[in-house]
Design a binder for these strands. Structure first.
Length: 222
DNA sequence: ACTTGATCATTC
DNA sequence: GAATGATCAAGT
């Protein structure tokens, strides 16, 4: 059993210690089996890192390390350091959002401080052979904060105006709003164009690849 | 090659 | 159903 880290320094030390290891090595330490495919285990790598670093497990809301105010994110990258996927942040509230401010939003809270763990995870690599990269702590700078807030406000305006079903993945400078559900039959409440209650797909906020790419480049070009 | 809608496992 | 962890894969 791995104890919850009691300081940011301890967490970073642990994360740094595993950089360079393969997922097979990490899994062996925890006596876990590596799946041959992520098709039916899409969150496996994220869960592996949570266990390794001592994040409070399970499906609890809020940050992974609440006592440290840190959110853990693994991000798959290619050999050039480019992210291979968008990064899911959290689900989007679709009703009762009147008066909600960016600074009070769940997504703003989650992105205050993120421990990024890049995973060299090119598609052709076996899951076992994928490699833990160098971890780093990120806090959005003023520009990033502003871009995130602008996108968030645009999305929340559209949702409040009953236009949730007009939102597509192209909207947003640095993040996008896309379905986040078990499947296309999972529905939740939202507001329709005439102000009536409708059923729609649950949505989530995702950071776009160019945005996370820039964060990684800034980190590793210093 | 990249984007975007769809999907998978698990817990509560 | 909603939250956590995300990637898949068809279409452009």
């Amino acid at each position: 059993m791995i104890l919850i880290p009691d300081s940011e320094q301890q967490l970073m030390q642990r994360a740094s210690d595993i950089a360079g290891l393969s997922l097979a090595q990490l899994a062996a330490d925890l006596q876990m089996e590596v799946p041959s495919s992520l098709l039916r285990n899409k969150g496996w790598i994220g869960n592996l890192l949570e266990l390794t670093l001592g994040a409070s497990a399970g499906s609890k809301p809020q940050q992974d390390f609440p006592q440290l105010g840190i959110e853990l994110k693994t991000i798959p990258i290619d050999r050039f350091g480019k992210p291979l996927e968008t990064t899911f942040v959290c689900v989007t509230p679709l009703i009762g959002i009147g008066g909600l401010q960016w600074q009070q939003s769940n997504i703003c809270n989650k992105l205050r401080k993120v421990l990024w763990v890049p995973i060299l995870a090119e598609k052709k690599m076996a899951i076992s052979d994928r490699i833990i990269g160098s971890p780093f702590l990120w806090q959005p700078n003023k520009i990033e904060q502003s871009l995130l807030q602008q996108d968030w406000e645009e999305f929340m305006d559209l949702i409040a105006l009953g236009k949730v079903e007009h939102i597509n993945g192209r909207i947003g400078q640095v993040m996008q709003l896309r379905p986040k559900a078990a499947n296309s039959r999972a529905l939740t409440d939202a507001v329709g164009e005439d102000g009536q209650r409708i059923k729609t797909l649950p949505r989530g906020f995702y950071l776009k690849i160019p945005f996370t790419h820039q964060i990684l480049k800034r980190q590793f070009s210093i």
